[in-house]
Amino acid sequence: MKRLFALFLVLWPAFAAAQSWPVYENVYVNDYANVIEEGAEQRIMSQLKALREETGVEATVLTIYTRWGFESTGSLENFATGLFNHWGIGNAERNDGILILVVSEDREMRVELGSGYGTAFDREAKDIIDRVFLPEFRDGDFSTGIEAGTDAVIQRIARVQAAGEEPAGGGAGGGGGGWIFGGFAALFAGVFALAAFGGRIRDRFSRCPSCGKRGIRTRKNVLEKATRTSTGKGERDVTCPHCNYHDTVLYTIPRITRSSSSSGGSFGGGSSSGGGASGRW
């Protein structure tokens, strides 16, 4: 066992270096899942640009169809933190960047915060996700949810942090060692279960758009692999064993890039230590 663990420690840097990430086309909005309406996208970009010019805070929105088109990092949280740090979002000294990540097909999202934010902002991010983003997503209206949610993140997190204040409902919370240990154990168990069975679990509880019964079957095929210079193409086949419903949806796989020490080009070289909040619908 010790030899296996030592071998893992030796090989882990190579595995980490092989991870691939989406490439950003601009520093404000990258809608690779094509879920944001054109007018809404322009309004979001204007807000994010104004935020950056007025406060220096770098916030960016990324939508992707699925994160399984990239080399797996395990959980959504690890993926968001790795992507945030690879892009280098936020000022390198203040670490006040924000990543709003929406993965439409996987039905999950995250607001990843730079390491300069306190834990009160994690709770604020969770409240925004639960009350603003997810209700619209459950109704199938990604565009409205992302626009309203981004506005809430700007007003309740980014501008509050830039003013040196705490969220209105924030405050330091207490805790004990026991629940922390139990939480980590549950987290690791959940990560492995999701990595192995995530797709089947989502299919089991997803409703057929035709008959409304749960238990659709989804199969994804990569038609053209994404490279560093071009996007790829994939298709998702959805079938229902109850009513024989069938549908095929094409989606775009973003260009990929390899992990490096790059500060993220047009971003300021900020980093995240995993703060923020996630949501699923």
Rank of each mutant, 00 (worst) to 15 (best):
E124M: 07
N30F: 03
T252G: 00
N244E: 03
F79I: 00
I129Y: 10
A226D: 02
F121Y: 13
F142T: 07
F192P: 11
A168C: 03
L11C: 00
S271D: 04
G97W: 05
P13R: 10
F121H: 02
G275S: 15
D106V: 08
A162S: 15
F84K: 01
N26E: 12
V153H: 05
G90A: 12
Q47I: 11
R138P: 00
G116V: 04
N85D: 01
T63A: 09
Y24F: 14
E25K: 10
F121L: 05
G190N: 15
N34E: 07
A158R: 04
T63V: 07
R217M: 08
A226K: 04
A33P: 06
G149Y: 02
V153F: 03
F15V: 06
A120S: 15
P135V: 06
G269P: 06
A14K: 08
F79Q: 00
A186G: 07
R202L: 11
A6I: 15
I44K: 09
E77R: 11
R207W: 05
G275F: 07
W12Y: 14
C208W: 09
D237Q: 09
R255M: 13
S210I: 02
T150V: 04
L99Y: 05
I180R: 12
R138A: 05
S266N: 13
N26S: 14
D31E: 03
N78W: 08
G176M: 10
R138V: 13
Q42D: 01
